[in-house]
Design a protein around this nucleic acid. Structure first.
Lengths: 195, 195
DNA sequence: GAACGCTGTTAATGAACGCTAACAAGCGCG
DNA sequence: CGCGCTTGTTAGCGTTCATTAACAGCGTTC
């Protein structure tokens, strides 16, 4: 039942991601993180510098995987927009905890690694912006806002109940996200009291 | 310079909402919550039973406002779908901190008030489901998933950068959300733009 | 086979936290 | 005036937390 140090690290990171997703960074103690992999709290300090470093590594890993996967899918596909949509959708459906942590816990990362994580997140969004802009030209700020909203749509799955099976959910999200992204704004009369 | 007790409560709730949105429930101490309204920490116990009760009241208030506003808009409007879209969009744009707290902090609410909050959240979603189903019939689970995704799209604004002014953002979100909600699923093998 | 490095343990430390106790100032009201 | 309620304060309580110290088993290497 022995475990290599690389696998131990990965095991800790996976368990920590799951706990952080469920209860938030400050809602989980070092001791609980250790217990989740059958260790005591202080044992984690053999593998990570501290709790913040653990979170930083988790977020850096998630943003890197998202970005790298996106770039790979785009360059390998004939339809880069569908490729990005499918990538984000499958990531969100397969790893809801990663999406949750990635969205919520960035403020708790120390400033130095946080800058790097933000940089990668921005690069991922820019990958989207490039693909979407090529398909549908409009002001860049608008494209970027549309991309953020679309990713928000896809990332909402971890929080929704899930009465649909995976395939149906993937199909629905793809259809909705694509329609949202490529929708052409139409002028409409203002609703009473709104906007 | 005196303040009524009702205003004091509201002031504390507002400041707490802002801090919780920025740093998370466990990331803010009672003392900081007090300091945000010019008081010491223990003074808050004159107005709330404890930190958890404070959070519970915040979430109960948000979910109630969202639900009540949605019902009102629907019953007062000729186009209930546009009314709901405008309501959620204006709420998200006007109160990003409320959206953030509402999305993130429910797990930290004690179980009893949490049940009530969930009930109201569900009722709000059901309001959407009814309106959307009337406009576009399909299996209920699919409608509900589409509604969740649409609300996720709109609620993503608090997290996105905001290079657009409010009116443009509202317009964009309305267009995208409506397109996503009413998009008809198409088989994926079809040639792009075939229809 | 002894020294060493790696990975784990328990014990301890100092700080922060939520919350309560004890006390004080202001104010309406008999 | 004096009583009591409300809304503050500061001090203190017990707990929990992240982190470090001290120590132990164990496989590898010279």
């Amino acid at each position: 039942m022995d475990i290599g140090t690389r696998e131990r690290r990965a095991q800790i990171l996976a368990a920590a991601t799951d706990l952080f997703a469920r209860r938030g960074y400050h809602g989980v103690s070092i001791s609980e993180l250790g217990a989740a992999v059958g260790l005591t709290g202080p044992a984690l300090y053999r593998h990570f510098k501290g709790k913040e470093a653990l979170l930083a590594e988790i977020l850096l890993d998630i943003s890197t995987r998202l970005h790298r996967g996106g770039v790979e899918r785009v360059s390998a596909s004939a339809d880069p927009l569908d490729a990005l949509l499918d990538w984000q959708i499958s990531f969100a459906l397969d790893h809801p905890a990663l999406i949750t942590v990635h969205e919520r816990e960035l403020p708790h990362v120390p400033e130095v690694p946080r800058r790097e994580i933000r940089r990668i997140q921005r690069a991922y969004v820019e990958e989207w912006v490039g693909v979407v802009a090529a398909r549908m030209p409009r002001p860049e700020a608008e494209t970027r806002a549309a991309v953020h909203a679309t990713i928000g749509l896809i990332n909402s799955t971890p929080h929704s109940a899930g009465g649909l099976d995976r395939a149906a959910m993937a199909e629905l999200l793809h259809t909705m996200a694509k329609a949202a992204l490529l929708a052409v704004p139409v002028a409409r009369e203002a609703a009473p009291g709104a906007i």
